[in-house]
Design a protein around this nucleic acid. Structure first.
Lengths: 211, 211
DNA sequence: GCTTGACATGTCAGTCCTTACATGTCACTT
DNA sequence: AAGTGACATGTAAGGACTGACATGTCAAGC
């Protein structure tokens, strides 16, 4: 389809192959469980994605299937070709930094709320960060040599950063409440912010917040 | 369709409404530009998503359209109903923490590589974090009262955390190279890691790395 | 014997999202 | 006058993904 054809949109493949490579042969069900636990920090996928993908990868020779009698279990094992694909993706593929985070979106839109509501929202986010962080930190893999240790540490570092952000933001919001008493965002529905609408501003004003 | 119906899968709607609310009336083109710059830190969307979504939202009464003659421009403005929707989403919607990050996936799979390759990968990730962070930090919105300041600070905090992770990981990988000389992961294709395949291990071993 | 719940695998409708294609305007330069 | 490039809006094919539905096995407890 595309001119790249390779290394685009194959993260699910890679995640499955990586799990099979790291932990040995497994069934689709096992892999689905792994997406809920060990790899949840890096990628998510449900069984409705996993089962068809395993069939495709078997057809492509990236994994080998073996039907085990008990409970219709089908055991998948990575092939040398599959192992090669994971490694070349890791070494060659520059990951995209595309952001799509509901949390960041709420942070972005925070100034739309008045002070009290904003504080409530940040408190809820803080609680969420805290719970997530606790869930990560109690895993035994962190200091040991468990397989997911690098991703786990990254998740913990970013969770702590988010928690610090929440604390700083709460402090600023409460600070703004003590003096002034008008929150910075509720002084009007449409502050003159060098808007997007180029039609109602003169030329040359569109450089605000540029990347 | 679903039993929730509301507040699910509407992040794009919310992002568009939030931009219109914050910055005033704008065209689809303007909004697409905003997704490349100001809000890129929180959500991404191309114009092929934005134009149809604006049409839908206009039909739902969340935005009002006004055709401006010049260059077929269509100016969209948020309606009171749209503004209500953004605020209720912000206050009521608990964001999902669903992770789907190629960077985290590479971190997760790092132990599959031998030491030299792993170092190369982490160096590349570090460079990427560094560039991204520089791009964020040079924006004038950080300390000022620009609209996206909260999301920007969150992005910077998480970027710094990622950078620190890269430095720590590099240090560990290089440390492991000085003594031992066999990298922790290349001592065999299949270390006994309490695998996923329940069929080849006794019962009770599946608690490793559980969530 | 029967129920319950974990195990195990799948399909399907519908939505989301990306890539590629398609069209036309306007300002500026050559 | 023609070309270039930013402006501006769309459509369509196809893959990715979710949620709901569907089916059946097996072990443990009542």
């Amino acid at each position: 389809m595309s001119s790249l054809g390779y290394a685009v949109r194959m993260s699910l493949k890679i995640a499955l192959l990586g799990l099979l490579d790291a932990k040995g042969p497994a069934s689709g069900y096992d892999l689905a469980k792994a997406f809920e636990s060990s790899i949840s920090n890096a990628w998510q996928a449900g069984h409705t994605q996993i089962y068809p993908e395993l069939v495709k990868m078997a057809a492509d020779g990236l994994v080998a299937v073996e039907s085990e009698g008990a409970r219709n279990r089908k055991i998948y094992a990575i092939t040398p070709e599959g192992a090669r694909l994971v490694r070349s993706w890791l070494i060659e593929h520059q990951p995209t930094a595309a952001m799509r985070s509901e949390v960041a979106l709420q942070a972005f839109l925070l100034p739309l709320l008045d002070r009290e509501d904003a504080i409530e929202v940040v408190l809820r986010l803080r609680r969420q960060f805290s719970e997530r962080l606790a869930g990560l930190e109690c895993r035994p893999v962190v200091k040991a040599s468990g397989f997911g240790r690098y991703a786990l540490r990254l998740g913990i570092a970013q969770g702590r950063a988010a928690l610090d952000w929440a604390d700083d933001t709460l402090a600023e919001l409460r600070e703004a409440g003590r003096d002034g008493e008008g929150s910075p965002a509720e002084t009007g529905p449409r502050p003159p912010e060098a808007g997007l609408g180029a039609s109602e501003a003169g030329p040359g004003t569109s450089a605000a917040e540029g990347e």
